[in-house]
């Protein structure tokens, strides 16, 4: 029961930071989503030790390990778009496949090149 209370508190902290992120986005008219601003904010708070990891750890761990649970309702919305994936809609899957292959290949090659360059400098 104590653990459950802790987890709820941790998630409340995350929610609070999310609201602050939203507020920053609206106030400064930024394109970057409030949730992403909140994430950067929490990272900075943790990194500068402004807040203790123990304030958010258990709840966040549980959250991150079951992240996809929260994606289900949004994904189920596809029920209203099922006709898109019949016939020529299969092309959409092929677009995603090709684009994903390009992203993986090119981002991998680029980072590998920079890592190798760095490794050579150190040796």
């Amino acid at each position: 029961m104590l653990k459950l209370g802790k987890i709820i508190t941790h998630i409340a902290v995350l929610y609070g930071i999310f609201l602050i992120g939203n507020w920053i986005q609206l106030t400064f008219h930024l394109i970057i989503p409030g949730s992403v601003i909140g994430m950067i904010l929490l990272f900075i708070l943790l990194y500068t030790k402004s807040i203790k990891v123990s304030w958010i750890e258990d709840g966040t761990r549980l959250f991150v390990s079951h992240l996809t649970l929260f994606f289900i309702p949004a994904t189920v919305g596809i029920v209203n778009y099922l006709q898109l994936f019949t016939g020529e809609g299969i092309l959409l899957i092929i677009i995603v496949l090709i684009s994903t292959a390009l992203v993986m290949g090119i981002s991998g090659v680029v980072s590998q090149w920079f890592v190798r360059k760095k490794e050579m400098h150190h040796e």
């Binding site: 995350l14 930071i17 949730s35 990272f43 958010i56 750890e57 991150v64 992240l67 929260f70």
Partner: peptide
């Protein structure tokens, strides 16, 4: 909870 889920990725 999607918003806080993104914030959690900072961890």
């Amino acid at each position: 909870l999607l918003g806080p889920a993104v914030v959690a990725l900072a961890y």
